[in-house]
Amino acid sequence: MSVADGTHAELMDGVYRYQRHVYDLTRKFYLLGRDRLIGGLDVPARGTVLELGCGTGRNLVHAAKAFPRARFHGLDISAEMLETASVAIGRRDLSARVGLAQGDASDFDAETLFGLPGFDRVFVSYALSMIPDWRRTVAAALDAVNDGGSLHIVDFGAQERLPGWFKASLRAWLAKFHVSPRDSLREVLESECRRVGASLEFETLYRGYAVRAVLTKR
């Protein structure tokens, strides 16, 4: 990782050094749409899946159980989170099908980290709102998708149909955890689809609280 990447890794390790132990218990109340994303992966038999920003491994465990014939890989910049993810995966006897690596989601080499040139499915769940160079992460994620495969994203939305006080309070609270909703996400996804010739499915959830997107390569 570069110096900048290392600084962000240190920040994330600091944020989650203790939070990681209660992360899944608390986040389930407001990281909405994650299970909807997993259910929509539709991973082919013997398919390969990569999660960027895999955190505690919660999503990888759920996805591996939902698609038992697929192989999964997780990437995260935080060594602290990866330690928790490794324990969670091992506890559920999934280590043979789920691999983990530390790295920057905006700049990674899939071949070096996982021994694969690409994946049938790549997904990013509530991580773009925490990654400084999130636009580059979208491009890197899409480039890691095999032809005919898809990139799946769920994250905070613009909260455009929620009360103004709620939106302001939510964003102020999220900022304490270095989280910033990406209001231009749809425009960036549309631009990336044009770049690689992919199609875009974009859905607003819970009155704009969250958004879900699927980018499918031809």
Rank of each mutant, 00 (worst) to 15 (best):
E192I: 08
G115S: 07
D24M: 03
Y16P: 03
H73C: 15
I153H: 02
R161W: 13
S129A: 11
A141L: 06
G118M: 00
G6T: 12
L60W: 08
A144R: 09
A66R: 15
R182G: 00
R194N: 13
E190L: 12
F166Y: 08
A9G: 12
S106N: 07
D35E: 15
L41E: 07
A88L: 09
Y126L: 04
A175F: 01
R194I: 05
R69A: 14
R71Y: 11
Y30S: 01
C54I: 05
A79K: 11
A175I: 00
S169R: 12
G208N: 01
F166H: 02
V15W: 01
R121A: 05
E111R: 14
T204K: 10
P68V: 03
R46A: 12
T26N: 05
A85W: 06
Y23R: 01
P163Q: 10
V61C: 12
K28F: 00
A66V: 03
D35T: 11
F123G: 10
L50W: 12
A66K: 13
G53A: 11
T137E: 06
R97T: 04
L32C: 03
K176H: 08
V179P: 00
A144I: 08
T26C: 07
F166K: 03
C193F: 13
L25M: 10
F72H: 13
F67R: 03
A63M: 09
R91A: 15
D107E: 13
Q159Y: 10
E80F: 03
G118S: 13
W134T: 04
T48E: 09
S125C: 05
Y209T: 05
V43A: 06
H178A: 09
L215G: 08
T26F: 12
S191L: 07
R194P: 00
A101E: 12
L52F: 06
A96Y: 01
R194Q: 15
E187N: 05
A127T: 15
G197D: 00
L32W: 07
A158K: 13
A105N: 03
R136W: 00
G6I: 03
F72C: 11
N146W: 01
L116S: 07
T56E: 02
R218W: 00
V87M: 10
V124K: 00
V3N: 05
G99E: 13
R171N: 13
T48M: 02
F166G: 00
L113D: 08
A144W: 06
L60F: 11
G40D: 15
G14V: 03
R186I: 01
A4G: 00
K167G: 02
V211Q: 04
F177S: 11
R34D: 08
G90K: 10
V49Y: 11
D143V: 02
A45V: 12
D183S: 08
F119L: 10
P181T: 05
H178S: 07
G39R: 15
H73V: 09
S129H: 04
S199R: 14
Y23P: 01
A105L: 09
N59V: 07
N146G: 01
A101T: 11
R136Y: 01
F156K: 05
R121L: 05
